[in-house]
Design a binder for these strands. Structure first.
Lengths: 161, 161
DNA sequence: ATTGAAACTTGATCGTT
DNA sequence: AACGATCAAGTTTCAAT
C-alpha cells in the first residue's frame, strides 16, 4: 500500500464507483495502471464488490465503538443533537431510539487515542447528558446490504404497491 | 414496483451486481428491458450505486431494532451464540462487545409481528440470558461505507506499510 | 413498457519499457 | 510496476411494436 493506492482509493470512495475509467479521469493515472492497482487491492482483499465493501481492518479502522447517548431538554433537541452526532469524524451510524436511551451511535476508528477524542466530541455537544460506550471486540456480521438477509419475495406485500 | 422489478432486484442482490447483462442472463429478461427498469428504480431512489445502496424504507424494511444480548456461561460460548445470532432472519450486524453486555445486534424488519419473532429467536438461543431491545425511531446516518467519514490521508500512517 | 439490433463506451489484455 | 495501444465485452440508445 503506497500513496498511489491511496489516491486511487480516495477517488473510488469520493466517486462512489470502482470504475477504472472514472478513477483514471479523476486522478490522471492511466486507466491500465488503475486497473492493475485495483486488481492487486482486490487480490489482497482490501477491496471487493465495486469498492463498496472495504476491509476496515486492512484500512486501519479496526476499532469499533458502540455508544449510547442520552440527551437533556426533551425531544425538540433531538434533531439538532442527532445532526451534531452524524458530523463527528468516524461516526458511521446514528440511530434515534425510543426508551431511556436517545441515540445509539456506531463509530469506526483507527487508533486508541481517537476513542478519547470521540467520547469528548459526544460530550461536547451541549445537550448531551450522558454517554455509555462499549468496545467491540469482534464484528461477527456486518452486511453492507440488509436485504441480503431476505428473499425479496418474503417482503412481497409491502413491495407490491 | 411490480413482480418484474422484484425479479430484477432479487437477481441483482443474489449476483451482487447491477450489471444489466448479468441480470438479463440470470432472469431471461432482455437486457434492454432490465436496463429500462433499473433506470426507473434509480430515478425513484430505490437503488443507487451499483445496487449496493438500497432504500430500506422503499423495500419495506422500515423497522430497525437495536438489541443488547447478554449470554450465560462465560466466554467459551460467545462464538457459538454469536454465530447463532448472525443466522437469524433480518439480523444485519452482530458485534461482540466488552463489558456487561455481550452482544449488540442490529436488525432490519418489515413488520411489527417480526419484532416478536426476532426477540423470541434471540431468547431461544440456549445460552442467552437476557435481551434488551430498543426501537429505532429514525435513522439519522447509516453510511454503507465507513471510510466515507475520513479523508484517507488522515489514516495514512496505518495504511503505509 | 418492451424488445432486438445497432452504436457506443468501457474494461481487460498485451507487449514494450 | 507502468502504460499506450488494442481487442473483447459491456452498456446505452434507438426505432418499431
Amino acid at each position: 500500500m503506497d500513496e498511489r493506492d491511496l489516491v486511487i482509493l480516495q477517488a473510488a470512495v469520493d466517486l462512489g464507483t470502482g470504475s477504472p475509467d472514472e478513477i483514471a479521469t479523476q486522478t490522471d493515472i492511466p486507466k491500465s495502471t488503475v486497473h492493475y492497482r485495483l486488481n492487486k487491492l482486490k487480490e489482497r482483499g482490501v477491496v471487493s464488490n465495486d469498492l463498496l465493501n472495504l476491509d476496515l481492518a486492512e484500512l486501519g479502522l479496526d476499532i469499533t465503538i458502540v455508544t449510547e447517548v442520552i440527551a437533556d431538554y426533551g425531544p425538540q433537541y433531538h434533531e439538532e443533537v442527532g445532526q451534531a452526532l452524524t458530523e463527528i469524524e468516524g461516526v458511521n451510524q446514528v440511530y434515534f431510539t425510543m426508551g431511556d436511551t436517545d441515540f445509539v451511535v456506531i463509530a469506526h476508528l483507527s487508533e486508541r487515542e481517537m476513542v478519547q477524542r470521540l467520547i469528548a466530541d459526544y460530550e461536547a455537544i451541549e445537550e448531551v447528558e450522558r454517554t455509555s460506550s462499549q468496545f467491540v471486540v469482534e464484528t461477527l456480521k456486518d452486511e453492507p446490504n440488509p436485504i441480503n438477509d431476505f428473499e425479496l419475495d418474503t417482503l412481497v406485500d409491502s413491495l407490491l404497491k
